[in-house]
Structures are given as structure tokens and as C-alpha cells.
Design a protein around this nucleic acid. Structure first.
Length: 721
RNA sequence: GGGCUCAUAGCUCAGUUGGCUAGAGCGUUACAUUGACAUUGUAAAGGUCAGAGGUUCGACUCCUCUUGGGCCCACCA
């Protein structure tokens, strides 16, 4: 053995041997009780970041349960990441002086498909480098035909159950990227913008968006505001940049008399609140900004200008006409931005598919209240409830091509929508017309992601017998859903809703949430800040075991952590310490063999005994004491993993192995090694390797095989206390 | 405006249902050692556990308030 542990000589070789031997498959324990985790599918097109490295928590759970004899499945997958990926691809096109408008839909889709599949292996290789014991034979992609089929079926079922509706409603629309977004995707930013006080006939009102005035269909005041009682329900004459006009004054509680002048212009087509007010008062929707972000004909001389330009031009014109009372240029408010390109989102009316959320959300809330789903750490329950209790209907249409196209066809003759499970309908079921056109939109990626637990398990072909999926039967509901708390609402809550809806069962029994990995200064890693650290570089430098251990050690579940190089270094040294402990014990074995004292220890199980068996070899009082102490260690580590207290387990292992076992016991036994004490020493060491294996799989395997060359630690049984 | 979370050694963080002299890593200081360990070992210094009240035989831990970070949510034109 080398005097220094070199992870580069070990990790790849060991991973390959595990995979080749099929140890990642749940079938290694064919008769074990099922234990299953679905890997949150990383973006197929992007390299891993530290959030993915945190999936080490899942590997710990899987390896531990596998050793405990469970039939443990860790299901891998890759996400097509619709808009995300198309955005990256379009940037790539732009570098070549092209744009998506240069291609037809099918060509563009195929180009992105090729682009993604060229990059996809990278992500999978990185998961391997981290030592993740994923069953690659079951790998799924969100655009696999059988997954797509399931997504179609869900949509059709929802449509038939009246949970899906199509409505012309305001959506968050990015006029640069040409697509709408769900509420969750909007990024809010505080900005200082001028607040214009403009004259509307006898009234004065405050607005930040004078350019939308062409879309005004009313002016509103608070019903209790005595200043304006006489105008309510009257039409007032106003002077505008386009000449004289008339507009109705309505009363609505939405108006805050304290704000501005207590008068609001109502523009239902371009403001979420105004849209609601408009619905209450039956006001027409007058769209004056197009999906290209430009003013429409209704804006008269301003038509064709971008909304932002039009604002300046309109204000200038109004000032000329004396229609501006004053401008408050210290006004601070929040505006919604596109999370990707950071441009201002335009609320625009658009026909979209929506899912009614109330009944789905209620079922998901009940599942947690009835403890069918348990959330760890428990404090995240509140976040979960709060989201679901206040949820709004989910806009699932996206105007991108990279995704699952919505299986709905519009009848050009009678305006009926045909929704199918993916089959192209021959004719309209209402009027018989064959003039059917498929909706151009694709599903929000999270719509397919929300079905991932049952969709993966139902579609693992090799496990389908007589059209029934054995995987689904055996592993659903899954045992644990482990992910970052930042996607509790985006993903976990939606999976709960859709999973319960489609299967009648919760998709997972336990939700385990880890925190975020920030940069060494505690700041969130982001590309724009340039502080992103590539986890794979650290794996190269410190070894996967050290990186894994550093991520778990010293941070309680659900808490954020700052990436710590000193900690990584400490864990690398811990690897080296382990290595030299193994090396030392191995040397004692050689000494004993040379002395031919091999009657008891020369069998294949030499130095590989359980706590119970060790009792008869622990003759020396100190040996007996250390057998007892390791027995306690087994209890503690087991208890802590069972309770998702990984940092306790890691801390206990680190402290015991180094500062108890190595510093004290090995030093004690050094001068008095005989055959019996050697058996105790080496057996206790191997037990500790097993306890450490879920955390540091590579080095524990390498060391284990120095003692027991013909076996693998990863399929050994978990030590019994 | 609401909610969550954090505040413990110079730095990064543990402290599980309240219980002996509050721990780890890195850093600092002294000594030892080339040994199984690109070191490691032994020892030391370093904490009013943010602040103020309260509950209790006992509070880092539970409750209330205050201060200061971080995150999330929310329709104020």
C-alpha cells in the first residue's frame, strides 16, 4: 500500500466494478422490502452544480438501506428543461448569427434534440464521479416517448375531469423571449420610477405607465371616498393626446384612497389588478401592446413604438398639452422581470391552458396533515401549506418548441378544442370538420416534472410484464423525496398534487430537504456574480469521498452552508488517516502471518467478525472495552441516519474513528498485538468502514478489499449492535 | 406588510426531547516525533452561548420582547 491515499487511482476503477457487477440494482436484494428514491432529474444539457452534489444525502440513504437488506432503488433521470435549454440554444444560435425564426418548428426541435444529446453524457458521468449508486439500467429522460405518453394521458384526464380550461387571461409575458411564465417564475425587483400625475378631465390620477392609457376602459375610485362620490357611474369628458374622449368612472374597493389622488385608471389588458376590476365591472379588454412589445394601432401616432419608448413620447406630448399635473420621481415599486433575460415582463392577455388548482391543492394539503407525507425538517411544512392554500390556477402553456407539445387541436370551423392522449384526431368530434390545427404551445416543464415519480416507475420497460409495471407496483409510493428546499413549491408540492390525482396515492412518504451550498463568503452562487464553483473540480482535487463528507459534516439538514476549503482539506486528510489506519492494521496482519500464528485468523474471514462473534476473542480488558464502544457507535450512527440527522452521524464517525479509535485504541494495542487482539482490531476497523461507507464509498471499499479481496463492502450487511 | 430562518471560540459551524467543567474543523501557542499517516501526536490559549425579561431545582436549549443578518411570500396604480 502507498503511504498516501490517492483517490485518482481508486475512484473510477471502483465505480466501474460496482456498475459492472450490477450492485446498483435493487435486485441485489431480491427479497428485501422496497426502498426507493427518485433522483430529482438534473438538466440534461447542463453540467452539475453544487445543488446536485447535495444529492449525496440520497446516496447515503440508498447505500445504508441497501446494506440493511432493502431492495433499494435509486431511479436516475434527466430533464429536458424546456425554456432553460431553448434559451441556451438560442444564445448558441445567436453566436452563429442565426435565430430561432430561421427554422421551422420541426427543424428547430431536432437541432435542440441533437444539441442536448451531445451534452447529456456529461451530466451522467459527473453523477458517477460523485459515487452515486444510481441504477443506470433504469435511466429515463423527460422526453422519452413512454414518458410523453403518460404526460399526454394526464392532460387528457384532467381535461375530461374539467380541471383544465382554456382562458384568455393575463399572463406574465416576456416579449424578448416570446413566451409566458407562471407566477413562480417571475423575478421581482424594486425600482425607482417616475409616478406621473395626469389630468383626466376633472380628475387627476397617478400612474407609472401612461403609455397604457390607450387601453383604459374606466377610471376607478373608492366607493367610500366622498371627494369623488358625484362622479361615480358618470361618464366624464377627458382631454387626451389623441383628442377628446369619454370615460366611465366606477367605484371599487380595490382603490386605496390614500394612494396618489385616490383615482386609478383601469387598463384591464395590461395590469393584473385592473384585469380583476374589469371582470367585476364587465369592462372591455383593450389590448394596446402586442406580443412583440410594440404599441398597437390604438396608440395612434405612437403605434409601432416599443412600450418603453412610447412612455417617453406620450409623456412629452402630454406635457406639451398641459395634461401632466406633476411627476413624483422618487416613487419606488416592484416590477416583474423575466428570470432568464431580466427584461421587464409585460402582463398581456393571451389564450392559455390553465389547471384549476383548488381541489388538487386540497388533497396535497390533507396528505401532509394526515402524515401520509412527512416533511423533514418539519419547519418547511408551513411553507408548503402556505403555498398550497394561496395557490392560483397554473398556466401550463409555454411558447417554446423544446418540450412536450400540448395534445390539443383547434377546430377552425366550430372553434372546438379536441384533446387527445397524443393521437392526431381525424376530425372534430363536434362538427366533423377536418380543419384541425394543433396548438403550437408546449407544456411548462414543471408539468411533466410533476409526474416524474409515477411516470418513471410506470415506464421502466424492462420491468413491465403483462402491461403492468413491476417497478410501479413495488416502489410506488416512493420512500423518500430528497431535494433542495428551494424547489419545495415548484416541484415537491406539484408532484404531491399531480401524483395523488393520477395514482390515488401520495408519490412519496417522506420529503427530506437539504439547504443550499453558497460560496465561501456565504453568498449565493450565480453565474452573473461569477462565484460559481464547479463541484467536479473539487472532486478531482480532494476526492469524491472528501467532497461528500464535507457537504454532510457540520451542517444540519435544511440549513445553508458556505463552501469551505479548510473543511474540504480536513476531510481529505481524514481520507488519508483512514488509509493509514488500514495500512497499519494490514501490516500487523502480515506480522502475525509471518509468526505463523494463523490458526484462527488465516481463514477467509480473518479479521472480519461481528460484534457478537468478537466477544470470545476480546480477552484483554481494553479490547473488550473497545468492542463495547464500537457497538455504541453502531447504535448512534444507525439512529442518526434513520432520523435524517446526517451531520450527527458524520461528526460521530469522524471523531470516533480518528480521535478515539486511532489515537487511543490503536496506540494502546500497538505494543501488544497478538492473534486475538489483531482479530478484534481489524474487525472493529472493518465495522467502522461499513458505517462510513454510505458517506465515503470509495475509500471504504478500497480498504475493505485490502482485507477481504473477494467481496464488496457495498453489498455487505449493515453492522449489528 | 406577512412568514420562515439565523445570531455559540479569531473564522466556518455542531450542540437531537432543558441536566455533569459548552464541542469540532481551520487558525494560534508550546512540546514531541520521521513513526502506519505529503505529517501525526500530546497539551494550551480562546466563548457575558446577540441583548433584556420570564418559566424551571436547573436554560445555549422552552416562552415573550428588543436588536441585527439572510431567505421567501404579498395586487398597492
Amino acid at each position: 500500500m502507498d503511504s498516501v491515499y490517492d483517490h485518482k487511482k481508486v475512484e473510477n476503477r471502483i465505480y466501474e466494478s460496482w456498475e459492472k457487477n450490477g450492485y446498483f440494482k435493487p435486485e441485489v436484494n431480491p427479497d428485501g422490502a422496497p426502498y426507493s428514491i427518485i433522483l430529482p432529474p438534473p438538466n440534461a444539457n447542463a453540467p452539475l452544480h453544487f445543488g446536485h452534489a447535495m444529492y449525496v444525502v440520497e446516496d447515503i440513504l440508498i447505500r445504508y438501506h441497501r446494506m440493511k437488506g432493502y431492495s433499494a432503488l435509486w431511479q436516475p433521470g434527466a430533464d429536458h428543461a424546456g425554456f432553460e435549454t431553448q434559451f441556451v440554444f438560442e444564445k448558441h444560435l445567436a453566436n452563429e448569427g442565426k435565430s430561432r425564426f430561421d427554422y421551422d418548428r420541426d427543424t428547430l426541435y431536432q437541432m435542440i434534440w441533437d444539441f442536448v444529446h451531445k451534452n447529456r453524457g456529461g451530466m451522467e458521468g459527473q453523477l458517477r464521479k460523485l459515487g452515486f449508486s444510481l441504477d443506470w439500467s433504469r435511466m429515463k429522460f423527460t422526453l422519452d416517448p413512454d414518458i410523453v405518453k403518460i404526460v399526454y394521458a394526464t392532460f387528457k384526464k384532467m381535461y375530461e375531469d374539467n380541471l383544465i380550461y382554456r382562458a384568455n387571461r393575463l399572463v406574465n409575458y416576456c416579449t424578448y423571449d416570446g413566451t409566458s411564465f407562471s407566477d413562480l417564475e417571475v423575478v421581482w425587483e424594486e425600482r425607482r420610477d417616475p409616478l406621473y400625475y395626469i389630468k383626466y378631465g376633472p380628475l387627476i390620477l397617478a400612474t407609472t405607465r401612461p403609455e397604457t392609457k390607450f387601453g383604459d376602459t374606466a377610471v376607478a375610485v373608492n366607493p367610500n371616498d366622498k371627494r369623488y362620490t358625484k362622479y361615480i357611474n358618470q361618464e366624464i369628458e377627458i382631454e387626451t393626446v389623441l383628442g377628446k374622449a369619454k370615460i366611465k368612472v366606477i367605484a371599487d374597493d380595490y382603490v386605496d384612497p390614500e394612494f396618489g389622488t385616490g383615482v386609478v385608471k383601469i387598463t384591464p389588458a395590461h395590469d393584473f389588478n385592473d384585469f380583476e376590476v374589469g371582470k367585476r365591472h364587465d369592462l372591455p379588454l383593450k389590448q394596446v401592446i402586442g406580443y412583440d412589445g410594440k404599441m398597437s394601432e390604438a396608440a395612434g401616432p405612437f403605434a409601432g413604438m416599443y412600450a418603453k419608448q412610447a412612455r417617453r413620447a406620450v409623456v412629452e406630448e402630454m406635457q406639451k398639452k398641459g395634461l401632466i399635473e406633476k411627476i413624483d420621481d422618487k416613487y419606488v415599486h416592484r416590477i416583474g422581470l423575466c428570470y432568464k433575460c431580466k427584461n421587464v415582463l409585460e402582463p398581456l392577455p393571451k389564450e392559455q391552458w390553465f389547471i384549476k388548482m383548488d381541489t388538487l391543492a386540497k388533497a396535497a394539503i390533507d396528505a401532509v396533515k394526515k402524515d401520509e407525507i412527512q416533511i423533514y425538517p418539519e419547519s418547511f411544512e408551513k411553507l408548503y401549506f402556505k403555498f398550497l392554500e394561496n395557490i392560483r390556477d397554473w398556466n401550463i402553456s409555454r411558447q417554446v418548441v423544446w418540450g412536450i407539445r400540448i395534445p390539443a387541436w383547434f377546430c377552425e370551423k366550430c372553434s372546438n378544442w379536441e384533446v387527445t392522449d397524443g393521437v392526431v384526431p381525424e376530425k372534430c368530434s363536434k362538427c366533423g370538420s377536418k380543419a384541425l390545427v394543433q396548438d403550437n404551445d408546449t407544456f411548462d416543464t414543471w408539468f411533466s416534472s410533476s409526474q416524474w415519480p409515477f411516470a418513471t416507475l410506470q415506464s421502466n420497460e424492462s420491468r413491465i410484464k403483462n402491461q403492468e409495471s413491476e417497478d410501479f407496483e413495488k416502489f410506488y409510493p416512493t420512500t423518500v423525496m430528497e431535494t433542495g428546499y428551494d424547489i419545495l413549491r415548484w416541484w415537491v408540492a406539484r408532484m404531491a398534487m399531480v401524483g395523488i390525482y393520477r395514482t390515488g396515492k401520495v408519490p412519496f412518504k417522506n420529503v427530506v430537504l437539504h439547504g443550499l451550498v453558497n460560496d465561501p463568503f456565504g453568498k449565493k452562487m450565480s453565474k452573473s456574480k461569477g462565484n460559481v464553483v464547479n463541484p467536479m473540480e473539487l472532486v478531482d482535487q480532494y476526492g469524491a469521498d472528501a467532497v461528500r463528507f464535507a457537504l454532510v459534516y457540520g451542517t444540519a439538514l435544511g440549513n445553508d452552508q458556505a463552501l469551505s476549503y479548510p473543511k474540504l482539506d480536513a476531510m481529505r486528510k481524514f481520507s488519508n488517516k483512514l488509509w493509514n489506519m488500514g495500512r497499519f492494521i494490514n501490516m500487523q496482519q502480515v506480522t502475525i502471518d509471518n509468526l505463523q500464528l494463523t490458526k484462527k485468523s488465516s481463514s477467509n474471514v480473518k479479521g472480519h467478525m461481528s460484534i457478537v462473534e468478537l466477544a470470545k476473542f476480546a480477552e484483554h480488558a481494553n479490547d473488550r472495552e473497545w468492542v463495547n464502544r464500537v457497538e455504541q457507535l453502531i447504535k448512534d450512527v444507525t439512529k442518526n441516519i434513520d432520523g435524517y440527522q446526517f451531520h450527527f452521524a458524520a461528526d460521530r464517525l469522524y471523531e470516533f474513528i480518528w480521535h478515539e479509535f486511532a489515537d487511543k485504541y490503536i496506540e494502546d494495542v500497538k505494543g501488544r498485538v497478538d492473534e486475538n487482539s489483531f482479530i478484534v482490531l481489524s474487525s472493529l476497523f472493518l465495522i467502522q468502514l461499513k458505517l462510513l461507507h454510505p458517506f465515503m464509498p470509495f475509500i471504504t471499499e478500497e480498504l475493505f478489499q485490502k482485507f477481504i479481496p473477494e467481496k464488496s463492502i457495498m453489498i455487505e450487511s449493515w453492522p449489528k449492535s
